[in-house]
Amino acid sequence: MTTPTPHADADAEHGSVDAMILAGSRPGGDAMADSRGIAVKALIPVAGKAMLAHVTGALLGHPAIGNVHLLAQDFEPFWAHPDTQALAANDHVIAQESGATIAVSVDALLDRDDARYPMLITTADNVLLSGAMIDEFLSDAQSSDIAIAVVEKDVLLSRYPASRRTWLKLRGGQYSGANLFYFGSPQARQILRYWAEVEQDRKKGWKILTIFGPWLLFLAVTRLLTIDQLAARVGQKLGLRIRIVPMAQAEACIDVDKESDLVQAEGILAGRAGMP
């Protein structure tokens, strides 16, 4: 497998934030990819282009983004695909083989000499990622150790009333994750230990709270805390500055996890293509 090295003058020529894309396969495979006879989910076509190509295009085309790190178990399918093969020769793309879990893989990548902070982390199925979303997230994430993008329920449903997401219900609102994370300092890596304990139940966002103690869980499930208060409590426990970034764009929480998501994403991309 070819593993490109970053350009020697990356900092001078490109942006100040590196990015990481989680592009690997889940244990047991992916039903959407399997039904299409496609080796990996990140290569499923959305609006005529592989998922990964949408995400790398948004990141590499943004002036704030420097190197883009790809995490996957096998890169040969990407280097062989017409939509992504050019990434193998791009000086700003760095390939890193995944480990046993996402948390272990992210931690190993951040341990590399060519990894730098701040680091924006997203997924290969975040096909609606746009320059405006990156601008908004990075602007609000500054000066934090960890920032997490969310979309409030009313923001999504006012624009896409038929959308179905998994909601974290707290005082003052309900929120869905937006597949955008920001590690602003090396201290952020300590959260990966907790991530590893809950990543198999990633759709049950409340489960991570059990790790921080029953009192915090009680405050959350009884909706006695706002999302910012919850982040502050967790941050205080870990000694981290954790910031929640509510995204103004409803599309920020629409990734492609199932067939209905794909149909919706293709409709949104068609609309963008038709805009003057």
Rank of each mutant, 00 (worst) to 15 (best):
W79L: 08
L22W: 10
M119D: 09
A42R: 04
P45K: 09
K49M: 14
R116V: 02
Y117V: 01
D91I: 01
P77F: 00
H69D: 04
G28Y: 01
A147Q: 06
Q96H: 10
V46F: 01
G99Y: 04
A89I: 04
H81P: 05
V150D: 00
S144P: 02
V150S: 10
Q73P: 06
S98C: 11
S98N: 05
A72L: 09
H62C: 11
M119K: 05
A124T: 04
G99R: 15
D111S: 15
D125W: 01
Q73C: 06
T84Y: 01
P77N: 07
A86S: 14
L70M: 02
T122L: 13
A72W: 00
A47S: 14
S139R: 14
G29V: 08
D34L: 11
A58E: 02
G131K: 06
D107R: 13
Q73Y: 04
G29P: 04
S35G: 11
F78G: 08
M119T: 15
A72S: 11
M133C: 09
I65R: 01
M20L: 15
A108H: 09
P45I: 01
A19T: 04
A47F: 07
D111E: 12
S35A: 15
A39T: 12
D140Y: 06
A72Q: 02
F78C: 03
L43S: 02
E76Q: 14
A100K: 08
L120N: 10
M51D: 02
G37V: 03
S143C: 06
I44M: 12
V150I: 05
A42Q: 12
P63W: 03
V68A: 02
A39R: 14
A132W: 09
A47G: 10
V127C: 08
T84D: 09
L60R: 10
Q142E: 14
S98F: 03
I134A: 13
L43N: 07
I38Y: 01
I146M: 05
D74G: 10
D91W: 02
P77I: 02
A23L: 09
L60I: 00
V55I: 02
D83M: 02
H62Q: 05
V68H: 02
D83Y: 15
I134K: 13
I121V: 11
E152L: 05
A53R: 00
I102K: 11
D145E: 05
G24M: 07
M32C: 12
K49T: 15
M32D: 13
A124S: 10
A108M: 14
P77S: 05
E76A: 15
Q85E: 12
T56M: 02
W79R: 08
V104I: 13
L70Q: 04
A23Q: 04
T123G: 09
V127N: 00
P27C: 06
V127P: 00
G29C: 07
A100C: 03
D74K: 06
S105F: 06
E97D: 06
Q96I: 14
